[in-house]
Design a protein around this nucleic acid. Structure first.
Lengths: 94, 94
DNA sequence: TGGTTATTTGGCAATTTTACCAAATAACCA
DNA sequence: TGGTTATTTGGTAAAATTGCCAAATAACCA
């Protein structure tokens, strides 16, 4: 496999490698959410949440749609959830 | 889900988020390898390879076994491969 | 138009990750 | 025992990531 493909794949894993971003993915598993919903549940600045969302968006894991004043995010790379659940099972065994 | 679980899950993703470590995982999909095999195929210092292996080992993704002078590594978190293939499919679509 | 709300962007200091070199350890063999 | 090979560990400078604040944008409403 090419170096470039490994680099691109790495970007996906890097995008997921943060507690806040994993929380966002978990919430999105059950359907779209607007930015304000994440801000309400996370104890971080709204600008920080926005930057985490843009990391996931740039990686192609989620997409955004503006409706009125709000921006809604949707999970497109659904297999992240499958893997995430596998990790949970794995962690429970230890 | 607890903050601690998110932190632990993040460690798994961080451990995977490097081109060299993804290459290692790919090779291990087909069975165990010794450190020297990775060093031969990667254009980095052997101490660097060793440190990447220890990152994966500490995350519980691979395990090691010493036989003679050599150390062999085996992939235990096999679902990483499934996800890795999903990402490849995803990247090919774009 | 002016004000309010929702979100993103720019900038920056603190923290984390990375890769190399040199040195340490460990197993084997002469 | 001494030398060689395989691997890990410690140290360090460079690069990347993070989270906050302040400022910019963008949409809505009075």
């Amino acid at each position: 496999m090419s170096k470039d493909l490994y680099r691109k794949k790495t970007q996906i894993f890097k995008a997921l490698a943060h507690p806040t971003r994993l929380f966002i993915i978990d919430k999105l598993e059950n359907g779209e959410c607007c930015v304000c919903e994440f801000v309400n549940e996370l104890d971080v600045d709204f600008s920080t949440v926005s930057k985490h969302l843009s990391v996931l968006k740039n990686a192609g894991i989620i997409i955004d749609e503006k409706r009125g004043q709000q921006v809604y995010y949707t999970l497109v790379m659904r297999c992240v959830c499958t893997f995430s659940h596998c990790i949970e099972t794995f962690l429970n065994k230890e």
